[in-house]
Amino acid sequence: MAKISTRLMSVCAAAVTAVYAAGYIVTMPSAQANTSSMPDLGGTTPSQSTPSAAAKAFASHPPSAGSTNAVARHPHHARPKGGTGATGNSGAKAASASASASAKKPATTSRGTAAKMAKVKVAQYKDGVYTGVGSNPYGSLALSVAIRGGKIASVTINQYSMHYPQSVIDPQLPQEAVSMQTWRIYIVSGATASTYNFAEALYQALQKAKA
């Protein structure tokens, strides 16, 4: 079979590039709107092109109880039934689920250790409700943390626009944050970006709650 000529290939490539450029330019306002649609919670929204603060924090301070990767490979928590991973419609539902104050008993010794370590730090938090946002190229989320008696009483996801369904991390991660009293939650397999955003938002909120 005769091969396509170089000139025709160049013309095709130029046409595809032109269409892409047109689409990129036309969607610029909505792309900027997506970035700025996050509620102004007084926190700094990290740049989408840079690694998130949470990701950096995870890298520099891996969870004390076992390595992040090891946990991710053998997650303690199963994905919620019905979670469709990447296929599901991304969090169009209104975010409202909050973690129950009656947090589960730590399942493993390592979790218990982490919780004990976290107890030392709880005195650093002032009572009240604090908000935080997490954002990366896969989307953004906003949450509020209620501090009562110096402890994380509940975590509520207020806004969720990730490409993974919200059910993948909610109510799992809010419950874990309450249970472990820290923003260093375990990575949910298959929803790394959402987990990082959650951790970043929680970190931001807890920074505000610090005395």
Partner: peptide
């Protein structure tokens, strides 16, 4: 890319999966 452009111009699609997302890293 043509279909994404058409979606953007005619405002077709889901609010959480926009052509702006699909055309970007």
């Amino acid at each position: 890319f043509v279909l994404l452009l058409a979606m953007a111009v005619t405002h077709v699609g889901l609010p959480t999966n926009t052509p702006a997302d699909a055309l970007r890293v």
